[in-house]
Structure formats: structure tokens, C-alpha cells
Design a protein around this nucleic acid. Structure first.
Lengths: 210, 210
DNA sequence: GACAAATTTTTAGTTCAATAAAAATTTTTA
DNA sequence: TAAAAATTTTTATTGAACTAAAAATTTGTC
């Protein structure tokens, strides 16, 4: 039956996120006030606080929603044909980066990242990190696939490789959103350089002990 | 001659940073107010604003000072005996991590990282990133040394390897300060796993084309 | 020591996040 | 439809960052 009251609550919450998203994109995060969001949604500021606790809570709720979509798409979007570890990660990173800039913008992403760092125990930061984890596990599974295809050493933990790559991608993502004039292409290059260098850093030789 | 006025100004700035550091360590960043810092330093709040612009500006000035010391030490502290890339990075990371927790604490570092991300163009964030860059170049030079010793492929850019490693270290540093119950030892392990996995991810074989 | 210049402090105000408690409204239930 | 329950809004406050402009102080110069 889903209770009328419950439905209206969800409707209000949805309205808050929609209006907040529009306002933040329009005016920027800092210029957007809770009262402004509330007014746009036809509610009182206190109600917004009731639902999301803080201004950062509203922001992270917006992101959580868009990230759920990203996760859904990621599984399908990562082409199963890629049989190279480097190209796999670059493809993975491109999808994330592209999703990020089409849904929000760089200054807002900076606020998102900052908010999850300053208060990592908040309810919203936790769901953000959960999604991050799920995203990294998509990568891990792809690494496992490459291991089966013999393109990645079978005696190295797929989780370690996947997470390591994910972290590199993550740092470069933060750098990407921190530099307003860095294009997606340039970000792609820097990540390629990092990963390629690390994958080939050690001189290749037989397993003779040193 | 250095002008009396100039000397007093520097004295005041120094006092602000000292008192701010003490207060922030004692009460936490958010609980510490500009007025509180000003009172402790025997100045007015407006004066603190005049010198450092914002509360985050004060925080980043504190960090910049302590990071200068880190940079000085890093060159000397990185043992010249290390001839393994993985051990080199772990040693590098340990020095940074240890410096971080002995000078400030995790919640404060979270604020530092967040502040440099939200406003990457601020004067203080720039000096922070400059120091980061210099730090990464220390690593790059060590990689060059390992290349000369034949421990790292000579045909891979030392800058790429050094920066790549630095970024991995950086992500794990952020994770370290984000998790209050992560010990330095555990952080060391996770970084070791990442780097080791990436360095050995590709199956070793001759340069037969695919 | 008096005057000019520079700096700091005082004063006053704005804005906004966040919180608390009472009042009003809406929804459910009988 | 009336009473009860739950939720939202109103009202009111607090606390703090940040800003602007005038007043006071300190410093350097003659």
C-alpha cells in the first residue's frame, strides 16, 4: 500500500534533491543556501535540515543518486573485448570521468570529495565510499577475467591489482577536478603514463634469486 | 636593517600560527575560532583575517611550515642503501606518514586535504601543492638512482614511475587519515600490496609482439 | 617632539548554517 | 467527521566567518 504519507515524504525528498542540484549547478555550492533550496522546493529550511542534516548531506545525496546510475552502467559499458590491463583501466577511468563532468561540474566535485574526506563517518560519506568500493570491485572482476585470458599474472591477487589501479585512477580523478583547465584527454594521458610506467618499471628477468 | 615594523609583523604572524596550532590540536579545527586564535595571540580577529584571509588559510600556513621541515629531512632520511623500488616507496611513505601524525592528527589532516581540494587556486593551496611536487621529485631522483643500478628499467621515464608511485602513496595517505583506527603498520601493508601487485601484474615474457 | 604614513583595532553589520521548541497542518484511525 | 498521531512550519536564537569603514595606535621621518 506504501502509505500516502510515506509517498509524500519521498516526493519531498526527491524535490529537494532536484532543486538543490539545479541551484548548485547554477550558482555554485557555496552560493547556494539551504533556505534557497527549501524555497525552490516549496518547503521550509528546517525541513531540508530534517531530511539531510547538513548542506553537505544534501550534496552527497545528490551524488549518491547519480553514482548509482554510474554503477549500473559501468558493468555494461566496460567492453568485454578489452584484453589489455592498461586499456581496461583507461576505459574504466574515462567512463567515470565522463559521467562526472556530464552530471555535475569540477568545482562541485571538489566539494564532494572534500566533504567525504572531512567527515568520513557521516551517513552520506559512508554510502559514497560503499559505491566507490563496488565500483572498484567491477574493476577487480575484470582483472580476474584478464588473468583467465593469461594477460595478467595468475599468481598476483586480482583484488590487489584492481584496487591498486582504482587508487591511481582516483588520485588522477581528484587532480582532474582540481585543475579547471585540464581536459579529459589530458587526464587520460597522465593516467596512461602512470599506469604504464608502473606496470613496466621492473626489468624483466627470470626468477633467479638476487 | 630589516625594519622594526617588519620584524613585529613577522613576530605576530608567527604567534598566530603557534597559538592556532596549539588551539586546533587541543580543541579540533571546527571548534577553534578565529577570535579564539586572535585572543590567544593577543590580537584582534580582524588582524588574523588580514594576515591569512580565512580560517583555512591559517591551517594551511601551519602545514606549509611543517612541510618545509619534512622536505628538508626527506632528502637525508631516505636511506641511500635501498636498492629495491618497493622498499624505497614504503620507506618514503613511512617518513611522510610518521611526520604527519607526529605534527598534527588525523582529523586535522582531513581538513588540510579538504581545504586544498575545495580551493586549489588559493595562495595557500598552491604552496601546498608546490611542496607536494618537490616531495615527489625527491622520489623521482631516487628512481633515477635505481635505474642506474639496473634495478628499474632504463627505458621507462623515471618521472612517470616516481609520480605514479607518489600518487599511490598519496591516495593511501588520504585513506590512512580518513580511518581513525588504521595504524601506520596497516597503512604500510595496504600500500605494499598495491605497489607490489602493480609492479608484478603483467606476465613476464620476451618482447615478442602480440 | 611633531607630523605623516602605515597598521591595527574597534565598531557595526551581514550572512548563513544549525538547533530548539512551540504552533499549525496534514494524515491516519476510529 | 472528530480525535489522535505524526510531520512540517514558524519563530527565535546562537555562533561564527567574513567584510567595511572609522578611530586609535604605532612607526618612521624631519
Amino acid at each position: 500500500m506504501a502509505g500516502l504519507r510515506e509517498r509524500q515524504k519521498q516526493d519531498r525528498q526527491k524535490r529537494i534533491l532536484e532543486e538543490a542540484r539545479a541551484l548548485i549547478l547554477e550558482q555554485g555550492y557555496e552560493a547556494t543556501t539551504i533556505e534557497g533550496i527549501a524555497a525552490a522546493a516549496g518547503l521550509s529550511g528546517v525541513t531540508v535540515h530534517n531530511y539531510y542534516g547538513t548542506k553537505a548531506g544534501v550534496l552527497l545525496a545528490i551524488v549518491a543518486e547519480s553514482d548509482r546510475k554510474l554503477l549500473e552502467k559501468m558493468g555494461a559499458a566496460l567492453s568485454r573485448d578489452i584484453d589489455d590491463l592498461l586499456e581496461l583501466l583507461l576505459s574504466f577511468a574515462t567512463i567515470i570521468r565522463h559521467h562526472a563532468v556530464t552530471n555535475l561540474n569540477k568545482p562541485i566535485w571538489r566539494q564532494v570529495v572534500a566533504a567525504t574526506i572531512v567527515d568520513p563517518d557521516s551517513r552520506f560519506a559512508k554510502t559514497y565510499h560503499e559505491l566507490d568500493h563496488k565500483l572498484s570491485m567491477v574493476l577487480v572482476r575484470e582483472v580476474e577475467r584478464l588473468q583467465e585470458a593469461g594477460r595478467v599474472s595468475a599468481d598476483i591477487s586480482a583484488i590487489a591489482v584492481g584496487k591498486g589501479l582504482f587508487h591511481l585512477q582516483n588520485t588522477r580523478f581528484i587532480q582532474f577536478v582540481s585543475l579547471d583547465d585540464m581536459t579529459e584527454e589530458k587526464a587520460d594521458e597522465t593516467l596512461r603514463r602512470d599506469v604504464s610506467a608502473l606496470l613496466h618499471a621492473l626489468p624483466c628477468r627470470g626468477s633467479r634469486g638476487g
